[in-house]
């Protein structure tokens, strides 16, 4: 076992010591970027998904069903963070626009809405399994997409039923709770990609967050702001946020999981990393 220069420890096989102390947000990002630099093919899945996001943005604006410009497009600053790495589209479609559509149009619209989560979900899974160097199998992909859908669809369906706290303490409490939830779920996609069952992945993600919540909150802020900033770029925003921000988030999660995974008290096997050192 060697000790990384920034304080973390890494095993001879490149696995990370989960007992090591947490590092600043920048260290995780640096490790993710190094990983991407070492293996640029990690960018490919989200590049393809980004093109799809941009295409769907374009199609939504041209079909005869209503399209919604997200409110964050007009905001001075916004956080567009998603637990599952994905792009931030410049358009969206409300559920109300689908109700009572004639069947052919309904099928077309639903297919259009389904293709993006499917593509970004698959891209995230491919990216993370490649970093984790794991062949987790189709069941893992199915679980990954199922959890992604279960988090995404209810939010889309029930977005009109909004929760609007009207007192400052309640707003602050809501923000704290939301932040804790996001931080606890930060590594969830990584564990699902690693082949964990849903409950075990949830537990592992929460365990990973323990002791490094501030660091993970920094990552949430970074990815949320970056996705928002990229998505605001006219025309190409959907592509840029998907192709540039999502892979960094996915690789960051995978790096984190690789360093924290116990997998039955055994670290995940890792490919030789050509001198890349763990941050842990």
């Amino acid at each position: 076992m060697t000790t990384a220069s920034d304080g973390g420890t890494v095993g001879d096989d490149g696995a990370v010591d989960e007992r090591s102390s947490p590092q600043p947000t920048a260290s995780v990002l640096r490790a993710a970027l190094t990983e991407l630099q070492r293996d640029p093919r990690l960018l490919a899945p989200f590049a393809v998904a980004g093109l799809l996001v941009a295409l769907v943005d374009w199609l939504r604006q041209r079909d005869p069903i209503s399209v919604v410009t997200p409110h964050w497009m007009d905001q001075t600053v916004s956080l567009q963070y998603s637990v599952f790495p994905r792009g931030t589209a410049r358009t969206s479609r409300s559920v109300g626009a689908l109700v009572d559509l004639e069947l052919p149009s309904l099928l077309g619209a639903v297919a259009l809405e389904a293709v993006v989560p499917l593509a970004v979900g698959t891209a995230g899974w491919l990216t993370m399994t490649r970093v984790l160097d794991r062949d987790s199998g189709r069941a893992s992909l199915g679980r990954y997409l199922a959890v992604l859908a279960s988090l995404t669809v209810p939010l889309r369906l029930f977005a009109p039923v909004q929760f609007s706290p009207d007192s400052v303490p309640l707003i602050l409490l809501s923000l704290v709770v939301l932040s804790l939830v996001l931080v606890s779920l930060f590594a969830l996609p990584g564990y699902l990609a690693a082949g964990y069952g849903v409950l075990r992945a949830l537990g592992a993600s929460a365990a990973t967050a323990r002791g490094r919540r501030l660091q993970l909150f920094g990552l949430v802020l970074t990815f949320g702001l970056a996705a928002w900033g990229m998505a605001r770029v006219p025309v190409a925003g959907g592509f840029l946020s998907t192709a540039l921000v999502a892979p960094v988030q996915a690789v960051s999660i995978a790096v984190l999981v690789r360093g924290s995974d116990t997998d039955g008290c055994r670290r995940l096997p890792s490919r030789p990393r050509d001198g890349v050192r763990s941050i842990w």
Binding site: S94, G96, L157, F158
Partner: peptide
């Protein structure tokens, strides 16, 4: 109609 609530989905078609 959303079951067990007074809420409705899809009343707003567009804004």
């Amino acid at each position: 109609g959303v079951p067990l609530t007074d809420e409705r989905l899809g009343v707003d078609r567009w804004r």
